[in-house]
């Protein structure tokens, strides 16, 4: 099956920490993304979950080319985005677009909605459909459920949910195959979240889009994703389909993360097996040796400090898990 539309190989992004003003010397690096391999298939949604600082947003920026990777490959339809330059890079980027988190800051307040959604066509003039840019923009507004007559309004005249629709329309303009959604609904109220998620799902069905869906809300990710990858300190620690991750997690971090999510059902109070993690996530500038989760892990052995567990199938895990002691945990249902 070669319907893989996006693949990364050993993707790494280190942000240098430098010292000195005139004579700058690099004294370290924040390892935001540290060796990520992922695959995205046509029409599929890959959910990426993790807590703040785990590198999920940096990963999103790498995928759409807003950051240059330190190392590694990003293959989109056989082209390695990291090696392309000039016109070829620009063409390749069309295929992978992004919806940003904050609909209040990701739209230019001085541009009309028509200009915002039409801007991709100014950068890629040869992507303007035959019937003209104006018509294309109106169509896009219609597709995302906004009134095409509002083309001359400004972002502040729209609500948060509507602004996120504008962001989605802009991402759709160049007819990409892949859309990277970085926390697309976390700034929205629950009653509005559902509207945007339903829109994303129906667009996916109609246009055959593939999504990389990054979010910290685990129930939203479960709802929309076919497969899920869990990130911790720049690495994917566990990946599998939604049932594998949510119902049979085998990595201790995934287990702790799921158990910490408050369940909207008061009957489960006191009946859940909650794993309390101690302390905070270590700094990505100085991650622990070996397994990065070992400092907070209740299963950690001396071995974990020496040898980094690879993300692979394990004896007691039906799906890839980066833990030497991966095994399912019998718990009450999380959802």
């Amino acid at each position: 099956m070669s319907d893989v539309v996006l693949e990364t190989r050993d993707l790494v992004k280190h942000f240098p920490i430098s010292k000195g003003v005139v004579l700058k010397t690099q004294v370290g690096a924040v390892r935001a993304v540290d060796g990520v391999n992922l695959q995205l298939r046509r029409g599929e949604t890959l959910g990426i979950v993790g807590e703040s600082g785990c590198g999920k947003s940096t990963l999103a920026k790498l995928l759409v080319g807003l950051e240059k990777p330190t190392r590694g490959e990003i293959q989109v339809r056989g082209d390695d985005l990291t090696r392309l330059t000039g016109t070829a890079l620009r063409r390749a980027r069309r295929n992978i677009q992004m919806v940003m988190q904050d609909p209040y800051t990701s739209l230019n307040p001085r541009m009309t909605v028509g200009d915002i959604i039409g801007e991709p066509f100014d950068i890629h003039p040869d992507a303007v459909p035959g019937y003209g840019k104006a018509r294309a923009v109106r169509d896009l507004l219609d597709i995302v459920g906004l009134n095409p007559d509002h083309i001359n309004r400004y972002p502040h005249q729209f609500s948060g949910g509507q602004r996120q629709r504008i962001g989605i329309a802009r991402a759709l303009a160049l007819r990409p195959e892949i859309i990277v959604c970085d926390e697309p609904v976390s700034a929205l109220d629950v009653s509005i979240q559902g509207q945007v998620i339903n829109l994303l799902e129906s667009l996916q069905r109609e246009l055959g889009l593939s999504y990389v869906f990054i979010a910290h809300d685990l129930s939203v990710v479960r709802h929309i994703s076919d497969r899920v990858a869990v990130m911790y300190l720049g690495k994917i620690v566990e990946t599998g389909n939604d049932v594998a991750i949510y119902d049979q997690p085998t990595h201790p971090y995934t287990q702790a993360l799921l158990s910490a999510v408050p369940v909207p059902d008061p009957r489960l109070r006191g009946h859940r097996d909650q794993i309390m993690l101690e302390g905070d996530v270590p700094s990505p500038a100085d991650p622990p040796s070996g397994c990065r989760f070992r400092t907070r892990c209740w299963k950690a052995q001396p071995h974990c400090a020496d040898q980094e567990p690879r993300l692979e199938l394990r004896q007691r895990s039906s799906h890839p898990s980066a833990c030497h002691y991966a095994e399912p945990r019998i718990t009450t249902r999380h959802y």
């Binding site: 009653s191 509005i192 979240q193 559902g194 998620i197 799902e201 479960r222 939604d242």
Partner: peptide, 20 residues
């Protein structure tokens, strides 16, 4: 009802129409 639930997987979420 607008909370994503397991049994709604693969189906549209229930939403509250309109805006606050």
């Amino acid at each position: 009802e607008s909370i994503p639930r397991l049994d709604l997987k693969g189906r549209p979420l229930n939403v509250i129409r309109g805006l606050p």
